[in-house]
Design a protein around this nucleic acid. Structure first.
Length: 435
RNA sequence: GUGGAUGUAGCGCAGUUGGUUAGAGCGCCAGUUUGUGGCACUGGAGGCCGUGGGUUCGAGUCCCAUCUUCCACCCCA
């Protein structure tokens, strides 16, 4: 018989158990931190009506979305978690308490060309805070606290949360009469890290930005110094534009409260070149970099948007949120050997029955499980050697062999697989400690 | 969408200027050891050499096509 070759689609991550264990651990750390800050869980369908997902539509999304028909229904796979959130909030407006803080961890789909660290199916770990009509700038300062806590929890110290405010850039562009070009200019200056200053100037010239405007823009993004110095230099630019002034106020407040939230000074900074999320961000924007590995790009990005659900409701719902691309984060950390899959099993004990009578081994396993000890029973008919080998290969730390002698005496030996040491346990009593 | 690469056991690879039955390592299975794993030794399974066509007495090796996977640009997590 001809066999079908077992293959996995390109751009879809599939892990071996030991890698998956590590992945799950990272995911759990993120989720626990989100919960610690009071974000509520949300789960939405992976498939939605195309009409709903493409309400906003536009460029890349439409090109990349997985779309198909089932009967007469035009369906699509979600390409992020923000659009489903918008739909959800609009739909359930009356049943939610605002500000609505929710987290969602789930897979999203983008039909892009695959590349290193670029997936077609990947996990996003999102939090958003949605206000009803308004949302305090304090929220903009709390988000970095969440980011900070997560990356500390994941074991990093040397990372920087970069903060900018789109109103500064937009105000600047407006004062230079470059509003129409704003998106284009943002995209170009966002690349400055990658392509350098000269190339940025060239590209700006290509889209017909005036020389003196280019100079003003560069003067702006090249502002350096400490956070406080940057703020005062921004003031000194003396840009007479309302949007700019609001942006300056907002970023000043944000920085002020970030400090109050207790983020160490070297884990955040104003970075006037970041201009993420070209479409919907309107205020504060964030990007987070691992300083030793800036080349991998931002590991957590987000920002503020004026009106989350404008395509679904007339209610004005401003929000702020971030997203961690967990699949890519896991992939690059693994590539860089910053994390290593070592744990091959989550069982702490393997019970090996060596008698026809399974009653006692099962009792023992149940007893251990009741004490929150992950326990596995070897249920297949093999020689002891093979059973031991199984425990060894999966690196299960403890083994309990249960044969007729043990059943009769009521005493088993708990073997520490690493040291070979064996301790006796009368399984009719509570197990005090396993170590 | 544009440009550049890749393809030999489960995995990462070797395979001489085209020459007989395609190799080693790791992994896997079994035995040495009928209730004690790792180590060692011995043995074993496992390959349409991506696919189709061509050149040739002869192709894993050369040519063409095709598929696949990967990389850069674009965009993004």
């Amino acid at each position: 018989m001809n066999k079908v070759e077992p293959r996995t689609l390109a751009g879809f991550m599939e892990l071996l158990p030991e890698e998956q264990i590590l992945f799950e651990q990272m995911k759990q750390k993120i989720e626990k931190t989100y919960q610690k800050f009071g974000f509520l869980p949300l789960d939405t369908p992976i498939i939605e009506l195309s009409e709903v997902l493409l309400a906003k539509a536009g460029g890349e999304t439409e090109k990349q979305i997985y779309r198909f028909n089932k009967g007469d229904t035009d369906l699509a796979l979600r390409f992020d978690l923000t659009v489903p959130l918008a739909k959800f909030v609009a739909k359930n407006y009356g049943n939610l308490s605002f500000p609505f803080r929710r987290y969602q961890i789930g897979k999203v789909y983008r039909g892009e060309k695959v590349q290193k660290g670029r997936f077609r199916e990947f996990y996003q770990c999102d939090i958003d805070i949605i206000g009803d009509e308004e949302l305090s700038i304090l929220n903009d300062a709390e988000i970095p606290n969440v980011i900070y806590t997560i990356f500390k929890e994941l074991g990093f110290d040397d990372f920087t949360i970069c903060i900018n405010n789109r109103k500064l850039l937009n105000g600047l562009f407006e004062s230079l009469s470059q509003n129409e070009n704003a998106t284009e200019i943002l995209r170009i200056i966002d690349k400055i890290d990658k392509i350098g200053k000269e190339a940025v100037i060239e590209e700006l010239e290509k889209i017909n930005v005036q020389k003196d405007s280019i100079n003003r823009i560069l003067e702006f993004i090249e502002i350096d110094g400490t956070n406080d110095e940057k703020i005062s230099k921004l003031q000194n630019l003396n840009i007479q534009n309302d949007i700019f002034k609001v942006g300056l106020e907002e970023i000043t407040e944000t920085i002020k409260y970030i400090r109050i939230f207790g983020i160490p000074e070297n884990n955040f900074k104003i970075d006037l070149t970041i201009a993420r999320g070209l479409d919907y961000y309107t205020g504060t924007v964030y990007e987070t970099f691992l300083n030793e590995h800036r080349e991998i790009g931002s590991v957590c990005s987000g920002g503020r948007y004026e009106n989350l659900a404008e395509y679904y409701t007339n209610k004005k719902l401003p929000g702020i949120g971030i997203s961690i691309g967990l699949t890519r984060l896991f992939y690059v950390l693994n590539e860089l050997n910053l994390i290593k899959a070592e744990q091959k099993s989550i069982s702490k004990v393997l019970v090996i029955p060596m008698s026809e009578d399974l009653k006692v081994p099962i009792e023992i396993a149940n007893k251990l499980r009741k004490q929150e000890v992950n326990t596995e029973i070897y249920l297949n008919d093999k020689k002891l050697k093979a059973k031991m080998k199984y425990a060894d290969k999966l690196q299960i730390p403890y083994v309990i062999i249960v044969g007729d002698d043990e059943i009769n005496s009521g005493i088993v030996k708990i073997r520490n697989m690493e040291t070979g040491e064996e301790k006796e346990w009368n399984f009719n009593e509570e197990l005090k400690e396993i170590s």
